[in-house]
Write a protein that binds this DNA or RNA. Structure first.
Length: 808
DNA sequence: GAGTTTGAAACT
DNA sequence: CAGTTTCAAACTC
């Protein structure tokens, strides 16, 4: 059975449902769970900055009772490394590492976490674990060694998995499984994941029967954790791996509770061993079961992967399939918001959710600081009780820092990440993981009622990752700063995006590829608790700045305005760097209610925030209207929300307007022209009259030169201001201690109370003396004031000189 | 800041 | 699909 209703699936664009990229694993192995990854070559990411590089695929998925295969597919971008970790219900995590190889994972309340790792884009081994293992501190991932090592400390018998998602500890069924080893490998360096007692789990691998599944194989390690999970923070512990000093990737799992992060670290890992996971094609490096595995890669630069887990037991419960979504364009940070319908035992919870806790701390982000091979991420997810497996297609990005984040919003989401080529949006298929849900979901036994989402191979052609912090000119060259775990969470994004409730709107079934970010699609009638959400990549970081998010029942979404966030999304045609380097302009719509494409906010899939619009409906309060408007726009133009600037044909310019402009008077040399605005030249598809926006156009060259000169001036001015500010700050820093010490004080420091009083007395005396007209009195007072100032300054200078002579 | 110009979006 | 209108941004003064 499919969680996703056929109707909704039918709406998926061809890109998403690409059968070449997607392998629908037959359900012949209901008890198996595996993650597959397509070769990177099959799904090249059509990004502008794409460079053919080896990629690393790392995914974390959780399975407790894996019954159906899960496919996760990722495409990778040039130098990015993406790691996604998602948990069954409450601990979806996503890691996106850039060149810095710094990886931070912050799991939240998770029932289970699964890890999928591929050594390279072509081959992999799927290893899934069944049952749960509770691991303690020694949890390390050595990226340099391409290993993730988990030392199991304790395990316990599984208890009610779905029971009180936040409070009850997830009981782990050991089943003799001792150790979980996950390797993070680069291309050519196989990842070794092995768990003992693999053979005990029949039907774990579903790859058989699918010819395509042979090549791309993942090593899957499922890690299950619940709210009480206490991730270990450590690099090279005694029980841990022996990490080579250099070229070492350390995965630190740090738990951050709302109050303290010093709690002992525990990690619960579910393990489902896929006996078939080891592919003969995979050059598997040593597989060591039951103990830490260390693997060295001499070429790898040191990497640090930090896993931190936030512990929020009672926070995230979204009822009514409300989905917090933030629209986003060209996400530099991929955000996945998993939304699940209320479970049978945890329905209709309305919990105020601190964003920094619920989102920020439970967000797992990874940033890789050093330029390294890209990492592909495959994410699969299973709930602890059964059923739903989350597939995600992750993806790729430009050479900038990227963040991939999965935000759990409900206890048991089933999420598919979908990235669509030609779309700047990231999509998430939401599959409600409800075992006993009353929403029409056939809820069978936990072992048999699995629903597996189809893996989707999507090229992210127009999905250009953006690095908000990086200047436009250096975005492609700059390697992101190595981030600490805190730095990952804290972003410089100032704009906020809107969280949008996923109110069921069965009447609206827009094309998913064209949905603007922030759109939440409710399950189709009779389709069960299946929802789709278009999630902007930067959503997480934006939400992290939001103080609180209140997740209410389906009937309402009270804190809508408070949680509105506004992402900086590149406008159509603008480069990512440009768009991210400047905030989006507020709209000024007056008549369109910001629900038509006239409104740039709406056209860009954003909610209006801090705009100057009147009668705005592009907000959370008018969710229904907004969705209808989106539907209308999509009906009118299915490409409405797709980026207008896409890749040109071969031999043509890399970028061109998808429709072409129709300028008549501007000569295509003003910003009226969308081509010119996008800083691209008009192409053959343009219908413009008197176009001067072509390569050899002298007018264009002149304008370009002028624009460049202006830009240089702006940069110089900015630099000057920055320098001046720095100097002032430095001066203040230097003078402050002097003032406190009393020596070398600035002149104004001599204007003490006594001095002021004396000065005032002098001025009053002059006023008394002045019997002349008022004008003369004023003159005398001013003169006296001047004399006072001169004396003060003189005293100051004298004191300073004296101090200098004494000290120096 | 007000008014004008412009071209995309929306409408017929 | 073409012509017209509406709209908001870009531009000018």
């Amino acid at each position: 059975m499919d969680v996703v209703s056929p109707d909704l699936n039918s709406l998926l664009p061809d890109e998403i449902m690409d059968t070449e990229a997607i392998e629908d694993i037959p359900h012949s192995h209901p008890d198996s769970t595996s993650v597959q990854s397509e070769p990177n070559d099959d799904t090249p990411v059509p990004m502008e900055t794409d460079t053919p590089m080896a990629s690393e695929n790392l995914s974390l998925c959780s399975n407790v009772t894996s019954t159906e295969p899960t496919q996760a597919l990722t495409t990778s971008a040039a130098t990015d490394t993406i790691l996604s970790i998602s948990s069954g219900s409450q601990l979806p995590m996503s890691i996106s590492t850039t060149s810095s190889s710094l990886l931070t994972l912050k799991p939240g309340m998770a029932t289970s976490i699964a890890t999928t790792k591929t050594t390279d884009s072509l081959t992999g081994t799927s290893i899934s674990t069944s049952g749960l293992q509770k691991l303690t501190a020694p949890f390390a991932i050595s990226a340099a060694n391409h290993q993730i090592i988990l030392n199991k400390v304790a395990s316990s018998q599984a208890t009610e998995a779905a029971k009180s998602a936040g409070t009850q500890p997830q009981v782990i069924k050991q089943e003799g499984q001792k150790l979980l080893v996950t390797a993070i490998g680069k291309s050519g360096q196989p990842i070794v994941l092995q768990l003992p007692h693999t053979g005990s789990k029949p039907g774990i691998s579903q790859m058989s029967g699918d010819p395509k599944s042979q090549a791309p194989q993942f090593k899957v390690v499922t890690i299950g954790g619940r709210s009480e999970l206490k991730p270990a923070m450590g690099s090279a512990g005694n029980q841990m791996t022996t990490l080579q000093a250099q070229q070492l990737k350390t995965l630190q799992i740090a738990k951050k509770t709302p109050t303290s992060s010093a709690a002992p670290i525990k990690f619960i890992i579910t393990k489902t061993v896929n006996s078939k996971g080891l592919s003969p094609q995979t050059t598997v490096s040593p597989v060591i079961a039951g103990r830490a595995l260390t693997q060295n890669s001499p070429v790898m630069p040191p990497r640090t992967i930090t896993l931190s887990e936030s512990l929020n037991t009672s926070i995230q419960s979204i009822s009514g399939k409300k989905i917090a979504i933030s629209p986003l364009k060209t996400p530099s940070k991929v955000t996945v918001v998993s939304v699940a319908s209320p479970t049978s035992n945890a329905t209709q919870k309305s919990v105020a959710l601190p964003v920094n806790v619920a989102l920020g701390q439970q967000i797992l982000t990874v940033q890789q600081a050093t330029s390294a091979s890209p990492v592909k991420v495959a994410t699969s997810q299973n709930t602890t009780q059964n059923i739903k497996q989350v597939q995600s297609v992750a993806v790729s990005g430009v050479a900038g820092s990227q963040f991939k984040t999965i935000i759990p919003l409900t206890s048991q989401p089933n999420v598919q990440q979908i990235q669509v080529p030609g779309s700047r949006f990231h999509y998430v298929r939401l599959v409600t993981a409800t075992t006993a849900s009353s929403a029409g979901q056939p809820s069978g036994p936990s072992t048999s009622s699995l629903q597996t989402a189809k893996p989707m191979v999507v090229s992210t052609g127009a999905v250009r990752m953006s690095v908000p912090i990086v200047p436009a000119q250096t975005i492609k060259q700059m390697a992101p700063k190595p981030l600490t775990s805190a730095a990952v969470v804290t972003t410089t994004q100032t704009q906020q995006r809107l969280i949008m409730p996923a109110t069921p709107l069965p009447q609206i079934q827009p094309n998913f590829t064209n949905l603007p970010p922030g759109t939440v699609l409710a399950p189709a009638p009779g389709g069960g608790n299946v929802g789709y959400a278009v999630v902007p990549a930067q959503y997480v970081t934006q939400l992290q700045q939001t103080p609180f998010v209140t997740l209410a029942s389906s009937s309402g979404f009270p804190a809508s305005t408070a949680i509105q966030t506004q992402a900086r999304l590149p406008l159509n045609g603008l480069s990512t760097a440009e768009a991210t380097s400047r905030p989006r302009k507020p709209c000024n719509c007056t008549k369109s209610q910001c629900l038509k494409l006239y409104c740039d906010c709406f056209a860009n899939g954003e909610f209006c925030n801090n705009c100057n619009c009147n009668n705005c409906f592009n907000n959370l309060e008018h969710e229904t209207e907004r969705l209808k408007a989106i539907k209308t726009c999509l009906e009118r133009n299915p490409e409405a929300f797709k980026p207008k600037i896409g890749k040109g044909k071969e031999g043509e310019s890399d970028r061109r307007h998808s429709k072409g402009c129709n300028c008549k008077r501007s000569g295509c040399l003003k910003n009226y022209c969308e081509c010119y605005e996008a800083k691209i030249m008009c192409s053959s598809i343009c219908k413009c009259v008197g176009c001067k926006n072509f390569e050899e156009s002298p007018e264009r060259k002149t304008l370009m030169h002028l624009a460049d000169a202006a830009e240089v001036r702006v940069q110089q001015q900015t630099a000057a201001k920055t320098k001046l500010s720095s100097q002032i700050s430095d001066l203040l820093m230097r003078t402050t201690p002097v003032i406190s010490s009393g020596g070398g004080r600035m002149p104004y420091t001599f204007v003490t109370k006594e001095v002021l009083e004396a000065t005032c007395e002098c001025l009053l005396e002059q006023a008394k003396k002045a019997e002349q007209p008022q004008v003369e009195a004023e003159r005398m007072i001013l003169e006296e004031f001047g004399h006072c100032l001169m004396r003060i300054i003189s005293s100051a200078g004298k004191a300073k000189a004296d101090c200098a002579s004494i000290n120096c």
